[in-house]
Write a protein that binds this DNA or RNA. Structure first.
Lengths: 244, 244
DNA sequence: CAGTGGTCTAGACCACCGC
DNA sequence: CGGTGGTCTAGACCACTGA
């Protein structure tokens, strides 16, 4: 019943409770469909008022992580990453969710000086070193995405020690580096010769390109550019009006 | 000071207050930068508790419609539609925000039977008539977007009477039909010959395609497919982590 | 330093819907 | 019908920051 760890003492109480509830959902202790403790139990567990607990749960319900019904209680949502277009977006998880076999390959890895023009997309001003990676992602052996990524080693020094052989850098960052803001820019571009070769498509094929920048408390964390064949990938976003 | 109309009595009090605050922002009574009444004033205006008023304001702040700072008060955000990728997305407003001159042209208009295969995208089951429109949108006279739209006349009969000569159908729908859910699907496709001709681009140019479906209480309202030259349009979305 | 928003409490009533 | 979540209240203290 109580897989709930203690609170971390960081920030408002409702956000602490929110994080405490997310942890067992993320690490698999509460798989989708699990019934989670009711408001009164969480209230007693942490000694908070019901409104405070309710606010944490409402926040999780608004983003689709949990599903709540009167009388029936609260359960972990079937597809916690309900908004692939929003927030963080993990291609490996998505390939597997669609029933494919996911794999990836590091095509290039180098450490750039902060003043290297190729590191400019991160928006760093000083000479902080930057890790540059090129990754190719596969679904059932066919190339699905080329990822070009920059990681600010000043903010994430641990990335320099990572081999990224069992886990791609994007997945590792999601699990290990907190972020507070993200920006996505989505465009359509024709495949260059290099991209076409890497994705096994014809030069000039329409590609969906997503650029994502992520910050933590105003400090740039990572920049990534994802290129997919236009016919193999679609972004879907669902939205509710008004009600928060 | 008090441009606030009475509440509409529909649904929870905090949502009624939310709507009452949105109205003067939408109709221009409170342009961006306007300082809006403080929590205590709204509280007295409607006889609600401060927590209830706060919840309405927090919801508006979370979606970027207002900006709040301690001591300074609450102001209407500079760019109320902060999330062009989310919610409703009005190309005319965006063209003008970027300093362009917006215009549009209705290329086709017809009423389809509900069982016409072209109306299938709306997902209607009975034989409800559907209005089909093709619209071309311009920025400074150059074609920026082709819009293919279906409107469920069973849910929005007033659309049949509209000329759409001063206002394009998308803008009219946003202002006149409430919606509760929306779905966006984003892909990249090569321009067909017809699309290329309408957008004055080369056949095969990479295009960004957005399909949007909108529902109101489970009833389909409209389906639209927007095609833009990939180099003339980018979708931007900004997100904050966790904190609602 | 004082005004504003951010949070939290302890309690209450109600609506819904599964048991 | 009763348990659960949804809402609302009246009050309180605190954090931040602009005047």
């Amino acid at each position: 019943m109580n897989d709930l760890e203690d609170l971390d003492g960081q920030g408002p109480l409702w956000q602490q409770i929110r994080r405490a509830l997310i942890r067992p959902m993320r690490d698999g202790t509460w798989p989708p469909g699990t019934k989670i403790p009711k408001e009164i139990e969480i209230m007693e567990r942490y000694g908070a008022a019901r409104m405070t607990v309710h606010r944490a749960l409402r926040s999780l319900a608004a983003e689709g992580s949990i599903s709540r019904r009167r009388r029936a209680g609260t359960v972990v949502a079937d597809r916690p990453p309900e908004r692939p277009l929003l927030e963080i977006w993990d291609i490996g998880a998505e390939v597997e969710r669609l029933g494919g076999a996911y794999s990836f390959e590091i095509l290039a890895r180098e450490t750039l000086d902060g003043d290297d023009p190729r590191a400019a997309a991160l928006g760093l001003e000083d000479g902080t070193p930057v890790l540059h990676l090129v990754v190719r992602h596969f679904s059932d052996g066919s190339a699905l995405q080329i990822e070009d990524r920059l990681i600010n080693l000043g903010a994430v020094p641990a990335a320099a020690e990572m081999g990224f052989d069992s886990e791609p850098p994007g997945t590792w960052l999601v699990g290990n580096v907190p972020w507070s803001n993200a920006e996505h820019v989505i465009t359509a571009e024709e495949a260059t010769r290099d991209i076409a070769r890497l994705l096994s498509i014809r030069t000039g094929t329409a590609c969906l390109v997503v650029e994502r920048r992520t910050w933590s408390d105003g400090q740039p964390i990572t920049w990534a550019r994802f290129v997919h064949p236009g016919d193999k990938r679609r972004l879907v976003g669902r939205f509710r009006s008004g009600s928060e």
